[in-house]
Write a protein that binds this DNA or RNA. Sequence first.
RNA 1: UGUCCCGUGGUGUAAUGGUAGCACAACAGAUUUUGGUUCUGUUUGUCUAGGUUCGAAUCCUGGCGGGACAA
Length: 395
Amino acid sequence: MGTKVAVGLSGGVDSSVAAWLLKQQGFDLIGLFMINWHDTEGTLSGDCPWMDDIIFAQLTARKLDIPFEAVDLSAAYRQRVVDYMFEEYRRGRTPNPDILCNREIKFDLFVQAAINHGAQYVATGHYCRKDTIMINGTETYRLLAGVDPGKDQSYFLCQLSQQQLASAMFPIGHLLKSEVRRIAENNGLVTARRKDSQGICFVGKVDLPVFLQQKLEAKDGVIVEIPSDSEVFKRKILPYDLHEKLQALSSPYTYHLSDGKIVGKHRGAHFFTIGQRKGLNVGGMMDPLFVIGLDVENNILYTGQGDQHPGLYRTALFIANRDIHWIRPDQALQLMEERRMRIRIRYRQPLQDATLYQMPEGLYVFFDEPQRGVTPGQFAAWYHDDELMGSGVIN
RNA sequence: UGUCCCGUGGUGUAAUGGUAGCACAACAGAUUUUGGUUCUGUUUGUCUAGGUUCGAAUCCUGGCGGGACAA
């Protein structure tokens, strides 16, 4: 009898192949399916999103001849992920529910469930890798990018801790997506040709404004266009003091009604996010309009014309101390320390060169190049080479 | 009231006698395990009634609507 591993079977090809690979390696497997959502409100498919998924997961377990069980974590998911989502949107910020889902559900409660089933490890179908090094005599886990450059999913795990990594296994992180598909095909896994899942983890594809209106009420407000040559964008002459410079560059522009002209109406500023183009319903412009700021207090949506609009770009961002998370605590920056890193601020974004500065109030990320759509509530994740070192919520 | 100007998809505009085009918006699909972005495709129009002409968005007349100047 080998080491006991619980594999999270989602009904997709990735987790199926992960399970198949572990089976080949002789692990004692149990397949667990997570139920995180029951409602169909707001979902586009109309029917229960996981009905098909659980069937495919079950078929996969049967094919591999491993025990199978469904774990219902929907109550906790609602509490720890969905409520957070509503709360962030209500505040005019843009959450990342999938990162929370991984931190709070998949690599917490789900792992607990796996342990209760006697498992020592939990395997998932994420495209990322883990290895173990020794530092001062203690085992330290490294979270590495998946080998497939187009599928690397380490970003979604950027909030995991050493403890959480300890029990994690990522069997497909060294493979390309095409190889995963081929393995599934060659071994008769029913999931081989299933379409990849999209949208919010386990909830499925949703019409977000409709989904959000379950909890956030619609209210009419105005859309204001800020001209690209507005005074708002003329930063005060940068002080020589590094700290003040970082503070200035990382703070969002603040707009007022008088800085632009009213070009349309919206049904609630909190339904939008920075950088958004679709859904503004304002036509007749030379170039498309993008959201460059939202004022939830006064329910005003600020926009700028064209993808080169200065309001769309920022060269620095700030992460408060309480929002800084080091996957590698041993590598954490000391006070007043700085370090070159590579950063992404959204899934699949190519890594951007930047310098991190640890100041008393928090961490500043100063990019070499201005970044488009720096959005409060989203996560910045910093890497050294292939290794995901830490992450934090953009302020 | 008089004179002049202007009415083209949802919006902004192009076509000055010869197949009504573009941009934005909207919708759909593709991409994407967050939001968003991006890509592709589709729908929708000559204010109205007559007239001239082989042929009218285009020229003429009336009406309707909007604007400017005059008083």
